[in-house]
Simulated scan of single mutants.
Amino acid sequence: MLKLTFCLRRLPSLTLAQFQDYWLNQHGPLVRRLQPALRMVRYVQLHRLENDLALGMQRVRGAPEPFDGIAELWWTDEEAFRAAGRDPEARKAGKLLVEDEAKFIDLPRSPLWLNREEVIYAERAAVVLP
Rank of each mutant, 00 (worst) to 15 (best):
M40C: 10
L114G: 02
I70C: 03
M40I: 14
F81I: 14
G62C: 11
T5V: 10
L73W: 06
A63C: 08
N25W: 09
E101M: 01
W23A: 11
F19M: 03
E101W: 02
I105P: 00
Q26C: 15
Q35T: 13
V31E: 07
S110F: 00
T15N: 08
L16T: 07
P29Q: 11
P36T: 05
A80L: 11
R42G: 07
L73Y: 07
P64V: 04
L53H: 12
A54E: 08
L16S: 10
P29K: 05
Y121L: 15
R9G: 00
S13G: 09
A90C: 06
V127S: 15
R39V: 06
D52G: 00
R33C: 13
C7L: 01
L30I: 13
R48L: 08
L8Q: 04
Y22G: 13
A71E: 10
I105L: 00
S110C: 00
S13C: 12
G94H: 02
L112Y: 10
R109C: 01
R124T: 14
E117Y: 08
N25V: 04
Q58C: 02
C7V: 00
D21V: 04
N51A: 07
G28D: 08
L8T: 00
A90R: 06
E101F: 03
F6T: 00
D100P: 03
R61V: 02
L30M: 15
V119F: 11
F6E: 01
K103D: 03
A63P: 04
N115E: 15
I70L: 12
V44Y: 05
P130H: 13
Q45F: 10
L96N: 09
M57T: 06
A102L: 06
P36G: 10
Q45C: 09
H47V: 04
L129H: 14
R116S: 14
A125W: 08
G56P: 04
E65V: 13
L24N: 10
M57Y: 08
P64I: 07
E117P: 03
L49K: 13
D52H: 09
R86E: 15
W74Q: 09
K95M: 01
S110P: 00
G28K: 05
F19T: 06
I70R: 05
E117V: 03
K92A: 12
L97Y: 02
L34H: 10
L107T: 05
T76G: 15
M57N: 12
R9H: 05
G94V: 05
L24K: 07
A122H: 12
E118T: 12
F6D: 05
L30K: 15
L46D: 15
D52Q: 11
P130F: 12
Q58L: 07
M57Q: 07
A102W: 03
A90Q: 09
W23D: 09
V128R: 15
R10F: 01
C7W: 00
I120N: 13
A93Q: 08
R124G: 15
E50F: 05
